Computed example of a mutant assay.
Amino acid sequence: MAEIQLRNVNKRWGSFVGVDNFNLTIADKEFLVLLGPSGCGKTTTMRMIAGLEDITEGEIAIDGKVINNLDPKDRDVAMVFQSYALYPNMNVYENIRFPLRVRGVDASTHDERVRRASRMVELDDFLHRKPAELSGGQRQRVALARAIVREPNVFLMDEPLSNLDAKLRVSTRAQIKNLSHELAVTTIYVTHDQIEAMTLADRVVVMQKGIVQQVGSPTEIYDKPANAFVASFIGNPAMNLIDGEMRGGVFETQRTRVEGLRAPDGKVTLGFRAEDASIAEDGNGQITAPIYTLELLGDATMVSVRIGQALVAVKADKSFRAEIDDTVSISVPADICHVFDTDTGKRLSA
C-alpha cells in the first residue's frame, strides 16, 4: 500500500513561491497527473515527494509515515525523468539491472526481474544493445524498465514523453497506461500536455503559479472547469472564451448574443467548446461573423471567427465548404455554455 499525503506543503526560494499550500491525498494505486504550464510548480512538487527538493513548510507522508527528513534512496520511490539518463557504456540489460546492484538486491533474482521488466516494455530483442544504438522511444522504455525492476511503492514520472515525436508519444502513452493497470502501483505523472493528462489519469491536479486550480477526474475537469484558466488549458482546441456583458440572463458582445443563461449581471466571460457548437444552416445562430480561417482535420472542419480579441472555433462537418471572409452563423445554445467572472476567472454558471 502507498497512500501519499501532502499537508500544507510550501516551497519558497527567498520571496519567490514555487508551490503554495499544496494539500492532497493520493490514494493507493491511483494514477495522479500534475498538469500545468512551465513554471507552475508541478515538477517541484514531484521533486519534494522524491526528496530531491527540500520542503519549506508542511509535511509529506507515505502510508502515514512522514518522509520529510528521509533521503531519496530511503523513500522507496522510482523516478523516470524527461532525459533518459542511461549509462552509455552499459547495454540495455545492465542499465535495467543497475538499480538492483546499487541497492544490494540478491543477485540470484536479478535475471528474472530484469527480463520481466524488459518483457513489460517490449525490449527483449534489444537487451544486448547500447543506448546509442536505440531510438528515442526505445531509450525511454529502458528508463521505464529500470524504474519497474525496482518494484517500488511509488512511481514518479517527470514528462517522460516530451522528447518523443508525436507518433511515438501516442504508442508510449498507451504502453504507460497498460503498465499502470498491470503494475497497480501509486503513480504521480507530471506533464504540460493535457491530452496525456486526460488519457492517463484517474485524477488530474491542474496547477498555475504554484497554486492548485482544480482537482478532479478528467471528465469533471473537462465538463466543469473551476475557472477560466482550467477551461483554457484543457481541451484540444481549448475552450472558446469571449468577454462580454450579462444583463437579465442575456450575454452580449460584438456579433454575439446568447439568451437563457444563469449568471449575475455584469462583466463576464462566456465559454463553450468547439465540438459543442455548430454551424447554423438557417443563419439564426448566436454568433454571426466572417470566417477568419478554415482547417480540414480529416473527420471535421475547424471554422474560426474573431470576436474582439478572441479567436472562436467551431467544429463543422468535414463536408463544410466556405471561403475565408464569408459570413457564417454559429449556433451556441445556452445549455452548452460556461460563464466565468471576467476579473477573477471563477466559474459562475452551475
Rank of each mutant, 00 (worst) to 15 (best):
Q5Y: 05
Q5F: 04
L6C: 03
V9N: 01
V19Q: 01
D20G: 10
F22E: 06
N23S: 02
L24D: 06
E30K: 00
V33P: 01
V33C: 03
P37V: 10
S38C: 09
C40R: 14
K42E: 10
G51E: 13
I55C: 07
I55H: 05
I55F: 08
E57S: 09
E57H: 09
E57V: 06
E59W: 04
I60S: 08
A61E: 06
G64M: 13
G64F: 12
K65I: 12
K73Y: 14
D76Q: 08
A78Y: 07
V80K: 00
A85P: 08
L86D: 13
N91E: 12
E94F: 06
N95K: 04
F98Y: 12
R101M: 13
R103C: 05
V105H: 00
S108K: 12
H110T: 12
R113E: 08
R116D: 11
D125H: 13
H128G: 13
K130L: 13
R139I: 01
A143E: 10
A145T: 03
R150L: 08
R150E: 07
E151M: 03
E151V: 01
V154L: 00
L161R: 00
S162L: 01
L164W: 10
A166S: 04
V170L: 11
A174D: 10
S180D: 13
S180C: 12
E182P: 11
A184D: 15
A184N: 15
A184C: 11
T186N: 04
T186S: 02
T187L: 06
Y189H: 12
Q194I: 03
E196Y: 03
T199M: 01
T199V: 00
M207T: 05
Q208W: 10
Q208Y: 13
I211K: 15
Q214E: 03
G216F: 01
S217T: 14
D223H: 15
D223Q: 15
N227C: 08
N227F: 13
A228Y: 11
A228N: 13
F229N: 02
A231S: 06
A231I: 10
S232M: 11
F233I: 11
P237I: 04
M239S: 04
M239V: 00
L241I: 00
G244H: 09
E245I: 12
M246R: 07
M246L: 01
G248P: 03
G249K: 11
E252G: 09
T256D: 05
V258N: 06
E259L: 04
A263R: 07
P264H: 14
D265T: 03
V268C: 13
T269D: 10
L270A: 06
A277E: 01
A280L: 07
E281R: 13
N284P: 07
I287S: 02
A289V: 00
I291V: 06
Y292A: 09
A300L: 08
T301M: 09
M302G: 08
M302F: 07
V303K: 00
S304G: 05
S304H: 09
V305F: 00
R306V: 07
Q309L: 14
Q309N: 15
A310F: 04
A313F: 13
A313C: 14
V314M: 04
K315I: 07
K318Y: 09
E323R: 11
D325Q: 14
S331N: 11
V332L: 09
P333M: 03
H338N: 08
F340V: 01
D341L: 05
T342Y: 11
D343T: 14
T344W: 12
K346M: 15
L348H: 10
L348K: 06
S349Y: 06
